[in-house]
C-alpha cells in the first residue's frame, strides 16, 4: 500500500504536467470541434453546432484531397527512409576507416531546423536562381521547376524529407543493431546459416521493436509535416503540395475558422492513430504467427 502511494507520489509531477500540456488541450480541441467559432463571423463567440463541422468535413473535397496527398507523401518518405536508413545502419554497424567522420556528416541534417531546411532547399531549387534547375537544364536539357510542375514540387519535397530524416532512422537502427546479443549470431554461423537466413530469422525479428518504434515516429512526423513544405512550395503549385497540416493551418489561422479547424485536426489525429494501430497489429501479430 505504501509502495503504491510512493509510486503515485513519484509519478504525480509528470502526470500533472502531462495533464496540463497534453490532456487538457486535447479535450479543449474536442470541445471546440462541436462549435462554430470564427472571430470575423457576424455572430461573435462560440456557437454550438453539434456535428455540423464533421458533416461539412466528410464532404470537404479539399481536405480529403489533402489527406490523400499526405498519405501518398507518408508512404514514399517512410518506405524510402527505412530502406536507406537500414542499409546505412548495416554499413555503420561495421568497422571501417572514417566511420566516425561519415556518421557525423550523415547526422548533420538532423540538427538543422525544418524551417531552415525548407529555406535551404528553396534556395537550391528555385527556378532562375537555384543551381539545381540551372545545371539540370544546362547538362541534361531537363526543364525543372517546382513552381510550375506539380510532380517536380512533390518529388522535391519527398527528397528533402528523405535527406532530412534518413539520419534519424540510421542512428536509431545503428543503436538497435549494436545492442543485439552476439550469441544467437555465433550459433547461427556454427549451424551453417547463410547471410540471408541470419538476416531473415535473426536480425529482422530481433530488431523489430526498434523498427516498429522508428516507423511510428516517422509516420507521425510525416503526417504532420508543415514548416518545410510551407517554406519550399507554400503548398503549390496550385494545391499539389498542400498537405493536411498545411491545409489545417490555412483554415485555422488566415481564415480563423477555429471550430472547423479543430474538427479537421481531430479527424487527422484519428486517421494517424488508426493507421499506426493497424501497422502495429500487422507487425506484432505477424511476428507471433512466425514464432508459433
Amino acid at each position: 500500500m505504501r509502495a503504491t502511494r510512493v509510486g503515485w507520489g513519484l509519478l504525480a509531477p509528470t502526470l500533472i504536467i502531462l495533464g496540463f500540456v497534453g490532456v487538457v488541450p486535447f479535450l479543449y480541441v474536442v470541445y471546440v470541434g462541436f462549435f462554430d467559432w470564427d472571430i470575423f463571423a457576424a455572430k461573435v463567440g462560440m456557437v454550438f453546432a453539434g456535428v455540423n463541422n464533421y458533416r461539412r468535413l466528410v464532404f470537404d473535397s479539399e481536405y480529403l484531397a489533402a489527406l490523400g496527398r499526405t498519405l501518398q507523401f507518408m508512404i514514399w518518405v517512410v518506405a524510402s527512409e527505412l530502406l536507406l536508413g537500414f542499409g546505412l545502419a548495416q554499413l555503420l554497424a561495421k568497422n571501417f576507416w572514417g566511420r566516425s567522420v561519415f556518421r557525423t556528416i550523415h547526422a548533420l541534417p538532423l540538427v538543422v531546423a525544418p524551417i531552415a531546411v525548407g529555406a535551404t532547399w528553396r534556395l537550391f531549387t528555385i527556378p532562375g536562381f537555384g543551381p539545381l534547375p540551372y545545371y539540370l537544364d544546362k547538362w541534361f536539357g531537363i526543364e525543372y521547376s517546382i513552381s510550375r510542375y506539380a510532380s517536380h514540387a512533390f518529388t522535391t519535397i519527398v527528397l528533402m524529407d528523405i535527406w532530412h530524416w534518413t539520419p534519424f532512422v540510421t542512428l536509431t537502427l545503428v543503436a538497435g543493431l549494436t545492442a543485439l546479443p552476439r550469441e544467437p549470431f555465433e550459433q547461427a554461423l556454427v549451424d551453417g546459416a547463410n547471410r540471408w537466413q541470419v538476416f531473415r530469422y535473426l536480425t529482422l525479428p530481433l530488431l523489430t521493436p526498434v523498427l516498429v518504434t522508428t516507423t511510428f515516429i516517422r509516420i507521425m512526423d510525416a503526417l504532420r509535416v508543415v514548416d518545410e513544405v510551407w517554406m519550399l512550395t507554400g503548398g503549390g503549385p496550385g494545391t499539389s503540395t498542400r498537405f493536411v497540416g498545411l491545409h489545417i493551418w490555412l483554415v485555422v489561422f488566415p481564415k480563423t475558422a477555429y471550430g472547423y479547424g479543430a474538427a479537421m485536426s481531430l479527424l487527422t489525429l484519428y486517421f494517424t492513430i488508426v493507421l499506426s494501430w493497424l501497422l502495429f497489429i500487422a507487425i506484432t501479430q505477424s511476428g507471433k504467427q512466425t514464432a508459433s
Binding site: Y54, V58, V274
Partner: peptide
C-alpha cells in the same frame, strides 16, 4: 474498448457521408 471506439467514430463518419 479501443477497437470499439475506433469503429464508433468510423461508423459515425461513414453515416454522415453516405446514409444520413
Amino acid at each position: 474498448f479501443f477497437i470499439g471506439g475506433v469503429l464508433l467514430v468510423a461508423i459515425h463518419l461513414l453515416w454522415l457521408r453516405f446514409i444520413e
